[in-house]
Amino acid sequence: MKFEEINIENLKSNNLFDIPDGYFENFNARLFNKIENSTQPVIKFKYRKLIYTISIAASVVIIFFLSKNLLFNDVNNTKFANNTIQTTNEVELSFIDEKNIIDELSSENKSVELKGDDIINYLVDNEIDEKTIADAY
């Protein structure tokens, strides 16, 4: 088929494509509706931007307070932990009075004094012979 055969006047006509009934009649109404809707998102966008800003600011504030609380809680927990240790020490120490402490300390340093037969009896009782004594020295 030659191009000249196709290049006829009816090919240039708008009848090549059909359009839905009433398309042009309804076009203006639909267009103005879309124009109204297309201007609204601008306002919405502004609000959205504001909402985003507020949300970010709120998040920052919340994070700040949460971290602050956590920090304080940590400090309090540390204090509490210290208090607990202190209290525990106090409770443990409350069972030990001065006399017990002195007795305990003096018992550690207490030396046994043995004389005469007591030495022989001690060595016999503990089965310590001459060789053991010689090895120790």
Partner: peptide, 14 residues
């Protein structure tokens, strides 16, 4: 396409 009413020659051109 339901809105196209051209014949074979017109389709070829497009």
């Amino acid at each position: 396409q339901s809105y196209f009413e051209g014949d074979e020659a017109q389709k070829k051109l497009f």
